[in-house]
Nucleic acid binder design. Structure first.
Length: 379
DNA sequence: AACGACCGCAACCGCGCACGA
DNA sequence: CTCGTGCGCGGTTGCGGTCGT
């Protein structure tokens, strides 16, 4: 039973759109809205199929589209979200409001993918391609060691992701109860954010999870934002793992890892978005001076953003990493007295006020994941 | 200047999901 | 519950422009 074509292709024009066609489409949509795409071309006097019209509108004619070069922040956002979401371009596009999924997809395929590959990062898995580096000379050994740590972190990340997907698949019908728990958790964690910052948030996760041995189990606090909660659990686990990794790396590059820790601790919500590429950048592992200028320049900017000049700038750097959502991380420089932060990362700035914004940002990302579960990776 | 190789982007194609009958 | 339809998504293609020889 074949699928009927989306439209009668006989006599319909294909290929590039002319200015006249654009004008017709624009005028029609401005006056009537697009309504049913199938019926639109006839009403608008276009010899196109509805699908073609929809594509032209959504990828080119829509008034809220920003065109032109991608900024560094946009690039970073794309990389982060790609690490989290994979090739779900529409989901990624919702976090770059003025960019279309098609544009992001093209940019990834033509620029970012190649750039990551050049940097030794597998653009599909965001894992380091460390075979070659592991067999290097003394200079490379440091990198290789770092890569090993990064691979550990990446592995933990993937495991956490896999687990949360499994969890979400195993979820069953206790939605009312879960919703209550979720609601309760939301208010609890929200106030916890205001009070003491990220460490307390982890405590909340641990508490809900009965001790924190299984981070992903925090994802049981779910529905209607089930994946959100699951991913929050994974985020906590990932963050924890990365802390270990960063600490383990301290004998290799202390100054870099001090800053890495600062970044990590400062940024509760976005920490889980730090992909291997960024982790690498922060460790300096992939900043090969021998690479071409473009590549080196990219990595320098990237690394600068991640490391920051001091502890305070870590938060700002993280803000930059998140891209357009400038308000997501809030103020830098507020007092923060939670000693846990001092113990773990030595960064005690810019943590408190940002959490509400952080939470919103993170929630929106996770909602995004939740919004199209069918596209989730299959296990 | 001419030609071929490469690159970037707009557009197309086909699959799968959502939803209504 | 099944089927048909519309739409959205990701993958792919093809064309025009740019670069290198």
């Amino acid at each position: 039973m074949g699928r009927s074509p989306c439209c009668d292709k006989v006599g319909l024009k294909k290929g590039p759109w002319t200015p006249e066609e654009d004008q017709k489409l624009l005028a029609y949509i401005e006056e009537h809205g697009h309504g049913s795409w199938r019926g639109l071309p006839a009403k608008a006097g276009l010899q196109r199929c509805g699908k073609s019209c929809r594509l032209r509108w959504s990828n080119y004619l829509r008034p809220d589209i920003k065109r032109g070069k991608f900024t560094l922040q946009e690039e970073q956002t794309i990389i982060q979200l790609h690490a989290l979401l994979g090739n779900r371009w529409s989901a990624i596009a919702t976090h770059l409001p003025k960019r279309t999924d098609n544009e992001i997809k093209n940019y990834w395929n033509t620029h970012l993918k190649k750039r990551l590959a050049k940097m030794g990062i597998d653009p599909v898995t965001h894992k380091p391609k460390n075979d070659a580096l592991l067999s290097g000379d003394g200079h490379c050994n440091k990198n290789a060691a770092n890569l090993s740590h990064m691979a550990q972190w990446e592995s933990a990340r993937l495991e956490a992701e896999a687990r949360l997907v499994r969890q979400s698949k195993l979820r069953s019908a206790s939605s009312i109860h879960q919703a209550q728990i979720n609601q309760e958790f939301s208010s609890t964690s929200s106030s916890a954010h205001k009070q003491v910052g990220p460490t307390r948030c982890l405590d909340v996760l641990k508490a809900w999870n009965g001790g924190g041995a299984n981070w992903a189990a925090a994802g049981d606090m779910e529905s209607p934002t089930s994946t959100l909660s699951s991913t929050a659990g994974a985020a906590a686990e990932m963050r924890w793992n990365f802390t270990d990794v960063a600490n383990n790396s301290s004998d290799l590059s202390k100054e870099e890892n001090n800053n890495s820790n600062s970044l990590l601790i400062t940024d509760y919500d976005t920490s889980s978005l730090l992909t291997s590429s960024q982790v690498w950048a922060s460790s300096g592992a992939v900043h090969n001076k021998g690479e071409d200028d473009d590549n080196a320049s990219f990595m320098e900017k990237f690394t600068d953003l991640l490391l920051g000049a001091n502890k305070n700038t870590a938060a700002a750097a993280t803000t930059a990493l998140i891209g357009d959502d400038d308000e997501a991380l809030g103020n830098v420089g507020e007092d923060e007295t939670d000693h846990d932060l001092d113990v773990v990362g030595g960064c005690n700035n810019g943590v408190v006020d940002c959490f509400e914004g952080d939470k919103n940002y993170w929630d929106s990302i996770l909602n995004l994941v939740t919004s199209s579960p069918s596209r989730s990776p299959e296990l």
